[in-house]
Design a binder for these strands. Structure first.
Lengths: 230, 230
DNA sequence: TATGATATTATTGTAATCAATTTTTACAAC
DNA sequence: GTTGTAAAAATTGATTACAATAATATCATA
């Protein structure tokens, strides 16, 4: 199911932040876009709902998940837990193949001209997924993939427009510390990196515009998610 | 979907180890057992497959997940990562309500007469889930629930018959250390506890009976999962 | 103009039916 | 007694049509 082209397409659109949280994913519309049947789409949406990528409202349809502020914080807290563990494990079991993959990825990141914003976004997410993969634990790997997706949605929900996702040298620094076997340094760098990403989001309890009832209720945990991108 | 009575029933049967790994979960059979329609069962099985509780083989049906030795180890490694993190968080944010819930649960565990093996099994799993809940992170809470389920399946797959799941005083000891605010002690106790559970399983590469071709291929990672409990 | 009720449209959910695949059973051959 | 083949039965998967619900549009009314 995870290798289904429709699932891949939707996940790709999410990680590239082309789909906005709250967007309705209509069955007929998706069936037409991907040239498939409504049943197929229905199965895909059920799968995405099981993975908290999509929220299903009875008789209303599926909407791209919209995290609350608290859930966004929880996602980052979970990432700190998991990714420090995977970084630590990667350093412990570093071999030539792992070193090569790390260097290769950093090479691609630095060579990225950042003109193609979509490709750049996918590339930065791949760094974290690769580290989880190198840790060699399939369970943590699955969790990491899910967390990266939910992070993309959280960023799309709470980012302040115009700011980049993270500083361009964060990944090379972490990779170098891993390659050097500096566990304490790598862990600290990873935590700083995640903190930085989280702090660029607008997760503060800034008093919303008194006229913006959507933002007001959203702060209480009530998401609209009616139709369209809201 | 998680609160669906059929899902609840299947998950309960798994955590009580009444369902053996590899068991076929036929659509018609389940529909009859739960007095519902095949469509409903089909949705439930798809959901369980998304959560790695069940494995779906095309045109063959759904079978209760059977982890390999490596995956079982990965599950326990993931639990060490997550549960040490949640224990640490629980100690940091311990309040009266949390203390009361901890004490209440330990009270129920010690009062348990262990005559009802099924209830006892559910109770021990609840301890770990409760700790994840007290940590107050919904993401980690969801992961913890999934890991507990997969642990139940792993135990059912690899336990040596007759041995208890864990020593009866492990949970009270951990709870006392948490209540005392002894973070280092609680973390160490939790790790010991998880190690103990894992080591009671037969995850070693003991040379299988040369005639038991099922065990032989299972060691290589090829699970039979044909039909029935194998 | 804004609000409320009603009818229409569109979308999701469910049931029934049919096709495809697999598993079982039966039987023949070595 | 085991192996191989073929037919039969059972189970899963897909298509279709229909029912239920929600969203939209229309119209009346204050």
């Amino acid at each position: 199911m995870d290798d289904d082209p429709v699932v891949q397409g939707i996940l790709k659109a999410i990680s590239q932040k082309r789909l906005k949280p709250g967007t309705k994913l209509g069955e007929d519309a998706l069936a037409q876009v991907f040239a498939t049947t409504r049943i197929h789409i229905r199965q895909v949406l059920a799968h995405l709902a099981s993975r908290h990528i999509v929220t299903h409202f009875p008789n209303r349809g599926a909407f791209l998940y919209r995290p609350t502020v608290q859930e966004a914080r929880d996602i980052f807290a979970a990432r700190r837990v998991l990714e420090t563990a995977t970084v630590s494990t990667v350093i412990d079991r570093l071999d030539d193949a792992a070193r090569a993959r790390l260097r290769q990825h950093i090479g691609r990141e630095t060579a990225d001209d950042r003109n193609d914003r979509w490709a750049s976004l996918a590339l930065t997410a791949d760094f974290h997924i690769m580290i989880a993969e190198l840790a060699g634990n399939t369970v943590l790997f699955d969790f990491a993939k899910e967390l990266m997706l939910r992070t993309s949605i959280a960023i799309a929900t709470f980012e302040v427009p115009g700011s980049p996702d993270c500083s361009p040298d964060a990944h090379p620094v972490i990779a170098d510390l891993i390659l050097a076997g500096d566990k304490a340094g790598a862990l600290a760098a990873m935590e700083r990196h995640l903190d930085e990403i989280e702090q660029r989001l607008n997760l503060g309890v800034t008093a919303p515009d008194p006229d913006d009832i959507v933002a007001i209720f959203q702060d209480i945990g009530i998401a609209p998610a009616k139709r369209g991108a809201v």
